[in-house]
Design a protein around this nucleic acid. Structure first.
Lengths: 211, 211
DNA sequence: TAGATTGTTAATCGATTAACAATC
DNA sequence: TAGATTGTTAATCGATTAACAATC
């Protein structure tokens, strides 16, 4: 887990929430908001919001609060929605297909440029307007197109080999839907895990043990 | 966010990881493991592992470590894999379909008993061996079958209404794939959020700002 | 000017890590 | 018995919350 520019991970994880709440405020036509009001909407504390934002700069104004549109744009800039990163997706099964078609990549400053699968019956098909390629083309594709982010929607058993290859081709970041702990085996990569099974079990534990 | 039996959320979130790592150790035929060795495999500290486990009881033995199979069974029991909860899924779109077919519910102590969608062309179809029902049947279905957990794979705009209805029908827990903050509007429910867009943006920020 | 609300420093809280006596 | 490793208490670290002077 490489450290990121001194901003703590809990703060970084809240940035997208700020962004989408501000987008909503804009849609509602609200022009200014105080940390207190925003806190109420997001179930945070006013203190926390001011602390979070002041990691990046003083976006507010004493006695007034924050200009909604300005803050939205600032956070968008911090999140880099204006700076496109190239993304590839490996494993076009149920989850892979859903991710490819459902996630709005371009809205989030990403560009999905390639899909890969081992299954012959998938290769050549179009998903989300992109042709599925053979796994054997992956290495060359990376050398030519230099994607920064790879989405892994492959079984645990294949994750190590695929990740190793991608890392040696220059991929630094993984959106990991496989149930394999990349961080344990590779240093200096950035991993965002979406472990659905773990998430469900956590929910189940909390349900069984609710106070 | 209802508090759960005094165990902190970070600990609860690690339980599924312990569980799957122990499963792997069993497959490898390893009979005993020390907190130090397990820490290395999971990129945790030995201290943390011992602290975590001692929230639930003294499962180890001084000078020896932990019996892999026993610990696996203990954690399985803590996670309640032997106690089935009934689950319904609302919204059989790309993500919903992928969840229904891909997630191994029964292995995790869950039973998927109903699928619901508003789209006429989906109603009546079978997904993961379960017939998709009309949304209009949802309320009656809940009263009859009493599901504890609902999976929301619906648009943000519909989440409030659907959740409200489910809560009044006795559902307490939500696996929330919609981009709507249930916790802000409802108290005394348990929510596990999977916000894919936020996860991707977090990854992207960290990639742009890697040190 | 008076009121509101920020930016920022200080206090608190909780989680992780370290240390070590207990004990298998 | 000697060595290893736990269970548990104490120390540290980091994140959240509170307080308040600065200022719009």
């Amino acid at each position: 887990m490489a450290k990121n520019s001194g901003i703590s991970l809990p703060v970084v994880r809240r940035l997208p929430r700020y962004y989408s709440n501000l987008e909503e405020l804009m849609r509602e036509g609200i022009l200014r908001i105080s940390s207190g009001e925003l806190a109420k909407r997001m179930k945070l504390t006013a203190s926390q919001i001011r602390q979070d934002l002041n990691n990046f700069g003083g976006f507010g104004q004493q006695g007034y609060g924050y200009n909604v549109t300005d803050l939205y744009n600032e956070i968008g800039h911090i999140l880099g929605v204006d700076r496109k990163l190239k993304v590839i997706l490996i494993g076009v099964g149920n989850i892979g297909k859903a991710i490819a078609t459902q996630v709005n990549f371009s809205k989030r400053g990403c560009e999905l440029i390639g899909l890969f699968d081992i299954a012959d019956e998938l290769v050549g098909q179009e998903v989300a307007g992109i042709k599925v390629r053979k796994m054997t083309e992956l290495s060359d594709f990376c050398k030519t197109n230099e994607p920064e982010i790879a989405i892994l929607c492959i079984p645990k058993s294949q994750a190590y080999g695929v990740a190793k290859m991608l890392i040696s081709s220059g991929v630094t970041s993984f959106w990991n839907f496989s149930h394999f702990d990349l961080n344990v085996y590779f240093d200096d990569i950035i991993v965002e895990n979406v472990h659905l099974g773990d998430s469900l079990m956590t929910l189940k534990y909390r349900t069984n043990n609710k106070g």
